[in-house]
């Protein structure tokens, strides 16, 4: 592949044309702050923190590096005064929305923002959409999406309760950078059976007990979801991976 000739922060270098500006700068050891970007997910461009200043044929432009591709002859500045000024405002706004979020506080420290001049809202969700996109792109359950708009915008399951699409896999919990998405397992008061509760999605899912060692190991809907998408071995739906590996199927 022919490489692109790039000027990165004043130094001449070569970038891979198939990769985004963000990926290329990372390969060159230049750190650009990001919030909504995740290597397993498609570029999204929501947090705007990854902005860089590019110059082509004398024209300067601010673009989000996560979803912009490289062209030959591009001059890229990742920390120009203009970029840093905008980035500072962005961090101040994000910090105002979620002052308690550790990821936000760390970001503010990195950038040198001590406090936000905007009124604090005390939210925990930063709207990065990683849970929504993971559920859609990786898991394929499509249980989550944004609802409402403007200041009322939030992430929810349809009709805010009992999602029939959520499989309780916990990928949204795993990927959430602020910990606002959570789940826990408990014994149901009603049926006396073990259940997983997706706290934020108001959804309860029955858990499967391993037929061999009796331990609870996954939600039933999660196992069914995998069985629909992939060919699974016999006993997959009833036996935990630990016992399957040992060959203890019943």
């Amino acid at each position: 592949m022919t490489m692109c000739n790039i000027t990165l922060n004043g130094k001449k270098t070569k970038f891979l044309p198939g990769k985004t500006i963000l990926e290329n700068t990372r390969d060159h050891g230049v750190k650009i702050p990001v919030l909504c970007s995740h290597e397993a997910l498609k570029p999204y461009g929501a947090c705007r923190l990854c902005i860089v200043e590019i110059e082509e044929q004398g024209r300067k432009q601010i673009v989000t590096s996560c979803n912009s591709h490289v062209r030959d002859g591009m001059k890229i500045k990742t920390h120009s005064p203009r970029v840093q000024k905008i980035r500072k405002t962005l961090v101040e706004l994000l910090l105002a929305r979620t002052p308690e979020a550790a990821v936000e506080q760390q970001l503010a420290r990195d950038i040198g923002v001590k406090a936000t001049p905007y009124p604090e809202q005390g939210e925990l969700c930063i709207m990065c959409g990683q849970c929504v996109r993971t559920c859609r792109e990786i898991v394929g359950a499509c249980a989550l999406d944004f609802v409402h708009k403007g200041s009322k915008r939030s992430v929810a399951v349809p009709f805010f309760r009992d999602s029939k699409e959520c499989i309780g896999c916990g990928s949204c919990v795993f990927v959430c950078p602020t910990g606002v998405v959570s789940m826990h397992d408990e014994i149901s008061d009603v049926r006396g059976e073990p259940e997983r509760i997706m706290d934020k999605w108001e959804t309860r899912l029955p858990l499967q007990k391993c037929s061999s060692d009796g331990n609870v190991f996954a939600t039933r809907r999660m196992l069914e979801h995998f069985a629909r998408k992939h060919e699974v071995s016999e006993g997959f739906l009833e036996t935990c991976s630990h016992c399957l590996r040992k060959g203890n199927t019943k």
Binding site: R136, P158, F159, K164
Partner: peptide, 25 residues
């Protein structure tokens, strides 16, 4: 109605979450 949103999403083959997102937007 909830039923209408679910039915439309089923017929258009789009996730209910997507249809609900549009309906609330």
């Amino acid at each position: 109605s909830e039923d209408a949103i679910r039915y439309v999403s089923e017929k258009l083959e789009i996730p209910v979450s997507r249809a609900f997102s549009v309906a609330t937007f």
